[in-house]
Amino acid sequence: MKKLLSIIMTLVIILSITACSSSDDTNDLPDNGDLGTEEILEPDDSEDVDEPTEQITLRLAELHAEDYPTTLANYEFARLVEERSNGRIKIDVYAGGQLGDEKAVIEQLQFGGIDFARVSLAPFAEFSRDLNALMMPYLYRDADHMWNVLNGEIGQELLESVYDAGFIGLCWYDGGARNFYTSTEVNSLEDLSGLKIRVQENQLMFSLIEHLGASPVSVPMGDIYTAVQTGVIEGAENNWPTYESFSQYEVAPYFVLDGHTRVPEILAASKSSLESKLSDEDIQMIIECAKETQEFQIQKWNEREEASREIVENAGTITVELSQEELQKFSDAVQPIYEMSPYNEYEEIVSKIRDVQ
C-alpha cells in the first residue's frame, strides 16, 4: 500500500511539472494571432520597388552669346523641360557657337550628333525649300503681319515640313527685320550697286543681293568684322542685335533701314535623337515647352533691339532712313525673283501670306 501511494505521488509531481512547463512556453510565443505556430516573415517579392530614374541629358546648340534673346529663350526652354519632367530630362545650352557654326550644327542635328539647335531659317531652308516662302523680299507689312502668319496654319505646316528631312520643328523665334550695313554711305539703290555684301549661304539671299545690283559674298558670321576691315567685303545685312553684339558697327557704320526681309529663327530638334531617347509623351511635352517660350523670346527681342540700336547710335552709327519712293525702288528691283524658279513654286503660299490680316 505504501509502495502504491508512493508511485501515485510521483506521477502527480511529474504531471504538475509538465503543466507548468507548457504554460511558460505558451507565454513566450509571439502575439501574432496564431498561438500554436511561430511565423517566419519572408520578404514579399511581389511588392513594387521604386528604381532610381536615370537622368537624360540633351545638348542644345546656339550661335549667339549668353545674353542674346534667343539664348535666353533657350535657357527658359531648358528650365521648363526640366521642371515638367521632374528633373528627369536636362538640356544643356551651348551658346556662343561652341558646337560649331550654323551649317555644321544643322548637319549634326540631322544625324543626331546634337539634340536641339536654334538656327536662322535661311540655312535651314536648304532642307525644306518651302521655308524660303517665309523669307521672300519685302513680303510682310510689319512684324505683326509676320507673327500672324507664323502662329497660324501656314506657320504650323512649315514647322512640320522639316520632319522628313530628319528634324522636329518646335517653334519660331523673332529675328527682326534684316537691313544692310556698310562701310560706305548708302542713301539709294544706286549707292548699293557694285558693293560686295556678305549674305547667308542661301540661294534666295544671293538672288536678292544680285537683283539689287550688289555682289553677294559668303563669309562666316564670326569673320564679318575682319572681312569688312580688310576690304574683302563692304558690308553685310542683318538685324540690330546681331550688328551690335558682333561689334560690326565699328567697321560698317552705316545702317540702312530697308527691311528687305524678316527671317524668323527656328528652334528644332533632331528626329533620330529624340525618338531614340524619349517617349512620344516626352516629345509632346518638349514641343509644348518650346512653344511656351515664344512670347518670352519676343519680349526679350524687343527689349534687346531697342537697347542695341541705342548702343550703336551712341557709338556713332549713322542710321539711314530711306524715303517711301526709294524703298519702292528696292522692292521693284527684286520682284523678278518671284517669277524665277524655284521661287515661283511658292506663289500659292506667298498669296496666302499676303492675305493674312
Rank of each mutant, 00 (worst) to 15 (best):
I168Y: 13
G235I: 05
G166I: 05
A19F: 13
E250H: 10
K271R: 14
V217L: 00
T26A: 11
S245Y: 10
E339K: 07
E305M: 13
G97H: 02
R118F: 10
L35R: 08
Q110R: 15
I287T: 12
T10F: 06
Q229I: 05
K277C: 04
S245H: 05
D142R: 04
A307G: 05
P123K: 05
E210N: 06
L131Y: 13
L4K: 00
L208M: 13
S6V: 13
G155Q: 14
Q357C: 03
V219I: 15
L131V: 07
A19W: 10
L63P: 00
V217R: 01
E76C: 04
F127N: 14
V119P: 02
Y173V: 08
E210D: 08
E347C: 07
Y181H: 14
S46I: 01
T10I: 09
F206N: 11
A104R: 12
D115S: 11
N132S: 11
A177P: 02
F111Y: 15
K329S: 06
A177F: 13
R141A: 12
I40S: 03
G166W: 07
A65W: 00
E250C: 05
E157V: 08
L204G: 09
V320W: 00
P241M: 01
L322P: 07
Q248R: 07
Q297H: 12
E313P: 01
R178T: 01
Y225W: 14
E250N: 06
A125K: 08
W172C: 00
Q156I: 04
V334H: 08
V81T: 03
S215N: 08
S218K: 06
E39C: 02
K271A: 09
Y140D: 00
S323D: 02
N187H: 11
E303T: 08
N132Y: 12
E66Q: 09
S161Y: 10
L63S: 15
P241I: 01
S22E: 05
D115K: 03
S188K: 08
L4D: 02
S46H: 02
R354Y: 07
D44T: 08
S188I: 02
L11R: 00
N151K: 14
L159R: 09
S46N: 06
A307H: 05
N74Q: 11
L208Y: 15
Y94N: 09
R141I: 11
T293K: 02
G231A: 04
Q297S: 05
I286R: 09
E153V: 15
P342V: 05
G194C: 06
E157R: 14
F116E: 03
C171H: 12
S215E: 14
D92F: 07
D191P: 14
W240T: 04
S183K: 10
A78T: 03
A307L: 14
K277E: 11
Q229Y: 13
V105K: 00
K3E: 08
F116G: 07
R129F: 13
E305F: 02
L134W: 11
D174M: 01
S276D: 12
Y94A: 04
R88C: 07
A117V: 11
Q294A: 13
T57H: 01
E275I: 12
